[in-house]
Write a protein that binds this DNA or RNA. Structure first.
Lengths: 315, 315
DNA sequence: GTCAAGCATCAGCTCAGCTTACGTATTCTG
DNA sequence: CAGAATACGTAAGCTGAGCTGATGCTTGAC
């Protein structure tokens, strides 16, 4: 019978790419991980890893084993959830992660409601970029997280994670008041300077892709991840940028917001199997309530969506 | 994250009933099992066990946890199976269990075919009563087993096991040549002496139940588990008995076999998740081939039945 | 060429988890 | 209704799985 701890290391290796990263995630030394994976391979009787330059990659068999590992870990997570439910009374720590603009608008009211309804619950919030969320959930640094993607830049689901839809927002093109929007707003700003997110973020990718769809390559002038900063730069005449609805509750003067067809979709993600955990379930309820109280943006998905929804995979 | 070894002990406890039995099944001392279960309970944070007299029983939470454990163990078994497939070339040991009459008729030809087609496979056969099969499969003393039940005495499926149908046989009422069968053969022997299996076996239960259905309580005279012995006793005028088709290839003279509507159903059982194991799959193919070569009895189920079929639970 | 990143191996130590020994509660039996 | 047998739990002690830390090799970047 295979050792689940070792399977977990293999699973994490397939996501993190290097033994050193797996070691760090588990607060082990790389040596320990290397030894454990070697032992797993020995008892498997098949090659699971192979050196690829100075790193290791999984063989097809290794990848197949990872898929089984995901099932095992999800089942263990579900077992944990039933135990938490049996312990009764919502208690313990819930670590919630969210991207910056969601913290202010969505998370804060949800947090207040959760703290009021379940005083025994210890709530911890972490602000982080959506691309870092899957790893953080897998490594158990987070229990629940808000993630998003754009319809024109969808992210593939992560087998280790489950999620439910939360919000579906309009994305706006923010331009200076001197510009005159036309029927095709994106084309009208093809020669403008652009304010985009840092490379590697979704906000960066979506701007480039939106330009591509409109037939041009945006000229990147400024990098800003905070949408308030983006709007301020636009107001100062420094260029144009894309901002989602959540971020534009009070746009500065001198900025014109033109709705595009692009949608940003926010989801609540958690570890596969943890959906039955009472604290996770309560968090989902509170977040959905907070989202429905939000002006403007419409609630996404059905009221209680099925579990087969998708998580998101980093990188 | 819960420890799978401990979950396995809990699962086995729910089937075996005592810590001592679990210990024996794992070749541990009862003390070790007790300590591990105590640790499991401690990290679960809920009562999983409670003393009931001098034994322990599972709390409802404990039972719920066992159900999760079954899922985890099945997934690990499936992982094992893919590794075995990846190792390629059928090799290793397959331990097959069967009830006595199946060994001669079904298992022998299947064994010959398996040994011929896959010489690297080490085959071990164990003859045992069907009621002992579930425990043996769970405890990994067997990998594949033939089990049966009767349509009038169905056995509930075991969540730890999976199975596929193999045979569907007629059950005969064996009487001495002096008796004259009527339209309702069971009623015509209501006052006869009966030859039944040992108490606790299915053969025992089915005879009593068949009598009950016909409106009488069979007078038990002899106990015999070997159907050849049953037929010999019938031929000697010692009474009547029920025998399945597999056991009556060459009935002794002086015995009249009257077909009843009762059916005996034989299935191939294996651990949940092990159906993908190449050795198990090969065994199933060979057994089905042997069954289809059998004169008389018709092959049960579809050619390649779905995996949702039932195992059997002892006692 | 030089340096850092990354993995594997070896030696050594620590603690999880086993056995053994014993105590206690319960059930069975004559 | 003793007395034996069964079953579980706890305490003490020992062993090996698995960790750290040191070292060496290979690869890729500059």
């Amino acid at each position: 019978m295979l050792d689940v701890r070792r399977l977990r290391l293999l699973r994490d290796l397939s996501h993190l790419g290097t033994i050193a990263a797996v070691a760090e995630a588990h607060t082990y030394t790389p040596s320990a991980v290397s030894q454990q994976l070697a032992a797993l391979q020995r008892e498997a009787g098949v090659a699971l890893l192979e050196r690829a330059g100075r790193r290791v990659t999984l063989t097809p068999t290794g990848e197949a084993l990872v898929r089984h590992a995901e099932v095992v870990l999800a089942a263990l997570e579900a077992a944990d959830a039933t135990l938490a439910a049996a312990r009764g009374g919502l208690s313990g720590t819930v670590r919630i992660g969210a991207y910056p603009s969601a913290v202010r608008t969505l998370l804060l009211p949800a947090l207040v409601a959760l703290g009021r309804d379940h005083p025994a619950l210890d709530l911890m919030v972490t602000e982080l970029d959506p691309v870092a969320v899957p790893d953080a959930l897998r490594d158990r640094r987070l229990d629940v997280a808000l993630v998003h993607d754009y319809d024109i830049v969808p992210v593939e689901p992560d087998p280790a994670l489950d999620s439910v839809p939360l919000l579906d927002e309009t994305v706006f093109l923010a331009v200076g008041a001197d510009r005159h929007p036309t029927d095709d707003p994106m084309r009208s700003v093809r020669d403008a300077d652009w304010i985009v997110g840092s490379p590697g973020t979704l906000c960066h990718a979506v701007t480039l892709h939106a330009g591509e769809l409109a037939g041009f390559r945006p000229t990147v002038r400024h990098h800003a991840d905070d949408f308030a900063a983006v709007l301020a730069l636009v107001a100062a005449g420094q260029g144009v940028g894309l901002v989602p609805q959540l971020a534009v509750d009070r746009p500065p003067s001198g900025v014109v917001l033109i709705p595009l067809t692009i949608r940003r979709r926010t989801r609540i993600a958690y570890r596969q199997g943890a959906g039955g955990h009472p604290a996770v379930a309560a968090s989902i309820v509170a977040l959905r309530a907070a989202a429905s109280d939000l002006p403007g943006a419409e609630l996404a998905g059905s009221c209680r969506p099925a579990s087969s929804a998708a998580g998101q995979r980093g990188r």
